[in-house]
């Protein structure tokens, strides 16, 4: 099927500029087919190099056609002190990015749309050894999204384009588009000559049909070496990514270890039950979640708290990023405080 598709396109399109007068009728003939099937692969991809103005126009035409939709789905991802890029791949807000941008499972992130609107998001799964990650925008609305190259139609030498928020989000500029070719392909990495820079990490690489074929991961020590995670890595690990699994081991992201989580509260047991907060550490996860001195912790994730040791033991079994829900008594009034365990 794939070979046939490629060859068919090649033959038909090669005859385009040899028999110019046939162009309009050939195009018309192709239209119903193009609308009903996968978007047509531009003939120019099957030439070793563009040879003339027509070939260059074909690249430009394809790119300018698909660029607006690709750009609308490209996002900036902010977390803590850094930012990277990502791309929305479903109407309900699934985002693909790099594992070193998501930086772990269950992380709170901010997704910034092209128009500057900031949305809450959380990281789902990561593939730590190939730098793939999935993020979900947690706000409910319909988002612009792009299709994946599910059939793996992209080949060495194909013309591709990269989008990303190079150097961070800049509303006046928008995301930056770069054109290049696929120059190396391996199972877990594809390389293009679309030039990437810090802040592009996690951003999308598209073929000229506007399908997502990779996610920006890293750059070489020389110019012209720019690496992407192939979309097939995401497709292969899709279920695990959706279930927020930590897949593989390093080097792009390290698994949170049990017992290394950090809360930042000092407590003492009360005779009538619960733990009284005696100190809230400055700039700790507890302080950021707005705990106050003299708050009384009644329950953690549904279990009643009776001793300090019990709280410590519970936290020791948890890792950075794990969710905590405290039932708290403040000045006699009950409230719930939700937060995530931080890193020491």
């Amino acid at each position: 099927m794939r070979g046939c598709h490629r060859d068919g396109t090649l033959v038909v399109c090669r005859s385009f500029h040899e028999m110019k007068h046939l162009l309009p009728c050939l195009l018309t003939a192709l239209l119903p087919w193009a609308a009903s099937a996968e978007p047509a692969r531009p003939y120019v991809n099957d030439k070793k190099a563009p040879e003339n103005r027509q070939d260059l126009d074909a690249i430009q035409h394809a790119l300018t056609q698909v660029l607006p939709a690709a750009r609308n789905a490209t996002v900036c991802i902010e977390l803590g002190e850094g930012s990277g890029s990502g791309v929305i791949v479903s109407e309900d807000g699934l985002v693909l990015t790099a594992a070193h941008v998501a930086s772990g499972v269950n992380k709170d992130l901010t997704v910034v749309l092209e128009d500057g609107r900031k949305l809450k998001a959380v990281s789902l799964g990561v593939v730590a050894d190939t730098d793939a990650a999935m993020v979900r925008i947690t706000e409910k609305e319909k988002f612009p999204f792009v299709d994946l190259d599910r059939k793996d139609t992209t080949r060495l030498g194909d013309w591709v384009f990269a989008l990303g928020h190079s150097g961070g989000f800049d509303k006046e500029r928008g995301s930056v588009v770069r054109l290049g070719r696929l120059v190396r392909m391996a199972e877990s990495t594809i390389q293009s000559d679309c030039t990437l820079i810090g802040g592009d990490s996690g951003g999308p690489l598209f073929n000229l049909q506007g399908q997502l074929i990779g996610i920006h991961s890293r750059v070489g020590v020389w110019m012209g070496i720019d690496m992407h995670v192939p979309i097939q890595v995401f497709i292969k690990n899709w279920d695990g990514l959706l279930k927020a699994e930590f897949i593989g081991e390093g080097p792009f992201v390290k698994k949170a270890e049990k017992g290394k989580g950090f809360l930042g509260l000092a407590t003492e047991a009360r005779s009538e039950g619960g733990l009284k907060v005696t100190k809230v550490g400055k700039d700790t996860p507890a302080a950021k979640a707005d705990f106050k001195e003299d708050d009384v912790l009644l329950k953690l994730n549904g279990s009643e708290l009776k001793t300090r040791e019990q709280l410590q033991e519970t936290l020791k079994e948890m890792a950075e990023g794990d969710p905590l829900e405290f039932d708290v008594l403040r000045a006699g009034k009950p409230l719930t405080i939700k937060l995530k365990l931080g890193a020491r």
Binding site: M185, A186, G198, S201, S217
Partner: peptide
């Protein structure tokens, strides 16, 4: 801007010729 720098990767090994 506060950004995540791309990872620098030095290529030592070369891919097979037909894939480059």
């Amino acid at each position: 801007k506060l950004i995540i720098p791309a990872i620098i990767l030095a290529i030592v090994a070369h891919a097979p010729a037909d894939q480059s």
